[in-house]
Structures are given as structure tokens and as C-alpha cells.
Write a protein that binds this DNA or RNA. Structure first.
Lengths: 152, 152
DNA sequence: ATAAACCCGAGTAATTTACTATGGATTCAA
DNA sequence: TTGAATCCATAGTAAATTACTCGGGTTTAT
């Protein structure tokens, strides 16, 4: 019942980009430093997020990454689905293409997992990057300059 | 964001035991057959559940396993925590001993994961094995003899 | 021209997962 | 009293997954 580092790190990176939305593109190196993540690894995650249309990139010197749309229009669930795949505690309740139950069409443990899936999706789809930024501002008023802002 | 087979199979087995609560102990072999699981592997899971006090065992011929208390007093969450460990999408929001955030005490992605954790725990702790049996009876009226009852 | 950046695919060590194997200890029943 | 049916415990292991690293390329501002 654990997230991999892909989702964990990826959300940190997206939150970082959300905090710099509207400004110049943020170079990978800077995100990796601020969130203390491996640069090369993060590159893969941002590549996936770019292909999924959640971030845009600017190549060349002074380039970097930025959110493809406003922080309020990107949900945590969008990010996690790109990096971790469809939400599914077990395969037979997969969001996009549920695996065939090898046994019978009707099963009880399955409905338990479906409820878990829906409750996870409900939370992830109810929080946007914009929400996270507002929360951060409440906790760390003063923003940017006033010291580092770790994200677990 | 996926359960391992431990939790998946373990809940199937516990549901099987719940459906036979009050009767003679159910031998491992029978559970494994009915739920089409590896016998030896399931043995490990039931061992853990026994040590955790959720099932009792009777050794020797005519022995087997049975729930340690009424199905209504065993929640799905109890089973999953034994087999999968504490519920924690990421380590820093572990239910029992949260890992230190290496960076800072205050972080925003962390509160997201805490909400996910609580929502998962909420679902798992709201469903008992007794509930599952009643659901099964509604779907498969006639019970026992009327054909196999797969559990995904 | 150079340096700062992104882009891409392959490789890999460590860990986890999902079992299997083996042998023993207990108990019922004939 | 013997044999079969059970549970109990530990160790081993092949496959998959994870979390990266490596070594190149390509693009673009200055």
C-alpha cells in the first residue's frame, strides 16, 4: 500500500513548479537541489509529465520546466496517474482496464478494493497544486525568500 | 499504490474463515483450494495472522484454522495491517512510526499523503468480515451449497 | 563558440515479491 | 500403535520491480 518514489518525488517537483508558476522556466537542476532529489532520475519523471501534457519545457540555456496550465487546474491525481499508473489497490479494480477475475464475476473482496480505490481517487482528485500552494503560504507566510520550504 | 498478494490473498482467506465461523476448523488445504491460492504461501500468511491473534489454529488431523473472534469484530484494516504493515503511502506519514522528514518539519506534500492514508484507513476500518459475509449473502443468496463463491 | 539547459535510451545494483522446499511436531482415528 | 492429516518453522530462490546511474545527444541564449 505504498507509493513508489516516482509519485512521491514527482509531486514534490510539480509543487515546486506550481510555486514558480508565471515566472521564468525552472531548470531541472534547481528543482533537484531544492527538493534534494537525483537530477537524472527527476529528468525521467519530468519527461513523463511532459509527454502527458502536464508540464512544458524550454530547451537551451535559460530554459527549464513550467506547468502547462494553472496550478488550480492540475490535480494531484493527474500527477500520480501519470507517474504511477491507474489507481488500483489490486488489478481487478483497475481504473482503466480492470483485470479479469480468474474465478467468478461476483466477488466480495473485490468490492472492498473498489471502495479503497474510490476513496484514494477522491482525495487525490480533490486537491490541486493551487490548493497546495495556498496551504504552503498559510504555514510558511512570507514565502520564497524566508528560508527553504521542504516538502517531505 | 498497489497492495501485495499478502493482503489480497490474506483477506480472501479471512473471508473464507468468516463464512465458516462457528463450525469446525477449516484446514488450510480447503481454503487454498476454494480460493485457488498456493497452500504453502497461504500457510505463511495464516501464521502471521495467528501470531497477531486474529485466527486460532487446531493442530493434528481434523484440525485447521478458525477466526479468533466474531466476524463482526474483525475489520479489514486489522487484517491488512498484519499482512502489509502500517498503512502509509509514503514513509513520513507512517501510522505507527513516521520516518523523519530529512528536510524540514513542515511540508505540504506530506499533508496530502496523510489525507490519503486517513481515507484508506477509514474505509478499511469501517468494513468488518461480518459485513462482507452479509454482502455476499445478498449477492449469492442460497449460500454454501449453491455453487462456488469466488472472491476475486 | 560556448555553456546552459533539455532529451533519450540503455544498463544495473539492490530490494522486494511470491513463492517453493524441507523437515519437524501434533493429534485423531482405525 | 501406527498412519494419515494437519499445523509449524526456517531457509532458499527465481523473477520482477525499483531507483537509480551513465553516456551520450540536441537545442538555444549570450
Amino acid at each position: 500500500m505504498r507509493l513508489s518514489t516516482r509519485g512521491h518525488y514527482g509531486l514534490k517537483a510539480m509543487f515546486d513548479l506550481a510555486q514558480h508558476y508565471g515566472a521564468a522556466p525552472v531548470p531541472l537542476k534547481l528543482i533537484a537541489e531544492r527538493q534534494s532529489l537525483s537530477e537524472h532520475y527527476l529528468e525521467q519523471l519530468l519527461g513523463a509529465l511532459r509527454k502527458a501534457g502536464l508540464v512544458k519545457s524550454v530547451r537551451g540555456a535559460q530554459g527549464g520546466y513550467m506547468l502547462a496550465r494553472e496550478p488550480d487546474r492540475i490535480k494531484v491525481g493527474d500527477v500520480i496517474r501519470v507517474l504511477e499508473g491507474p489507481i488500483a489497490p489490486v488489478d481487478c479494480v483497475n481504473e482503466t482496464n480492470p483485470a479479469e477475475c480468474d474465478q467468478f464475476e461476483c466477488c466480495v473482496t473485490r468490492t472492498v478494493w473498489a471502495k479503497v480505490r474510490d476513496s484514494i481517487a477522491g482525495v487525490l482528485d480533490s486537491i490541486s497544486l493551487g490548493d497546495m500552494c495556498r496551504d504552503a503560504r498559510q504555514i510558511h507566510p512570507g514565502g520564497e525568500g524566508s528560508g527553504p520550504s521542504g516538502t517531505s
